[in-house]
Design a binder for these strands. Structure first.
Lengths: 224, 224
DNA sequence: TAGTGTAAGTGTATAATGAACACATGAGCA
DNA sequence: TGCTCATGTGTTCATTATACACTTACACTA
């Protein structure tokens, strides 16, 4: 903190939060986008987000915006990066703190918000043109998500409470875009000790029923 | 970006940058602190930093503040995290974007700045009481630095252009607070192919002279 | 100039981890 | 009862990580 600048002396930027809400749907990694209904970028798809209120923390702002625009609550949320190029918003200086959120299939119900704005999940591979620098933000978030798969149990944010090992493996394969060997995957996952067999099995399917597993605790931890 | 908030409608927070400048000196990992000469926290040590100007990028603000307060230029700089708890600054709402910078021994000359403020390097282990939430920021930065040692060549930011393998190893040992086996360390470092023997050797020392090595390129890259 | 002090430099054996690979099992259903 | 289909399970080999000790090259001193 330099002594040369009075807190109130200079123009202040606006500060916003933008949230990448990832989910897995139909075997694809998707993110939530909102169609803008005002300028700039009217009609363009953008990340959910909005301005940070003067009395709320950044995390709270991200939670609030996410809830207002998707109805999602109590999900994993992690600060990603802060983007602050002077011209990233054509109106005025806006610095945006970005977040990554993960939701399981059942956790979101769109358009729960008062204003019935257009909101939809898009495959991260076939995204439309995005407003502002949001394409860059998505790229950054994807990279972070892929990295974190490797050394944390972050994947639990994308799964229901009980899941089969095949489902778990599919999530890894979808996000990392790789094929994984089934036996090696199971050995490695089980050796972490983070998940345990529930004893229950899938029912009503026309083949051998799979064991359902659960994460022993719901905290994201570093696994190696 | 929600449509419910006009850019100009609400109070805006102030946005600052704070920089963790790490260096190695006397076999210790140290960071630069500045003694505050104004309220709040008058007389308390704090991270170098200051307010982001309305027309400059966050990176530029961090570079500028670092230069103003330490005279250091052109060193490795990486955004860490953004801290925005509503009461973290008692004056008003200040959101701070934090950076980590790395400097070799020769790169800094303190008090090059106009105002002859108190500035000094402190061992990260024995830090004085810090202003604001700066202790938390240091803790976060240290963790990031330790992690990055493991999977990048970030260490080059702390070393001079030419260095011995023993010096390199010492940097790892100091930061990670571990003893490392000399032979295994050399095998691993050399196998990355990122450094090469310069052909020159240390001179004028009372024992077998060590080969000087250099990083083949000065970019920080991920090594595994 | 021989001897001493000191850090540099070097290899091998063992353990742990990662990668490749194929077939029997149990449920629903016809 | 037999067909279909995804589940579930072990071993071999290659790679990587770990543990560990002696010789070398220089400066200095006697």
């Amino acid at each position: 903190m330099s002594n040369k600048y009075d807190v109130t002396q200079y123009d202040r930027p606006s500060v916003s939060v933008d949230v990448l809400l990832f989910t897995i749907e139909e075997g694809e990694l998707k993110i939530l986008l909102i169609k803008r209904n005002e300028e700039p970028f009217l009609g363009t798809w953008a990340l959910p987000g909005g301005f940070v209120r003067i009395e709320e923390s950044l995390d709270d702002a991200a939670k609030r915006e996410l809830f207002e625009e998707s109805g999602v609550k109590n999900i994993y949320l992690e600060q990603l990066f802060t983007f602050g190029a002077p011209k990233r918003d054509p109106r005025t200086r806006v610095i945006t703190v970005t977040y990554m959120a993960l939701a399981g299939k059942s956790e979101w119900k769109l358009s729960s918000s008062g204003d019935a704005q257009d909101a939809a999940f898009f495959k991260v591979d076939g995204l439309p043109k995005l407003a502002f620098d949001h394409a860059e933000i998505v790229k950054y978030g994807l990279e972070r998500l892929r990295n974190k798969l490797g050394y944390t149990n972050i994947v639990l944010g994308l799964l229901p409470g009980a899941f089969t090992l095949t489902e778990l493996q599919k999530v890894y394969e979808i996000i990392l875009k790789t094929k994984i060997d089934k036996r090696n995957f199971r050995k490695k996952i089980l050796s972490t000790g983070l998940i345990s067999a529930s004893g229950k099995k899938l029912e009503g399917i026309a083949h051998r029923p799979a064991m359902l597993y659960t994460f022993k605790n719901k905290k994201i931890v570093i696994t190696d």
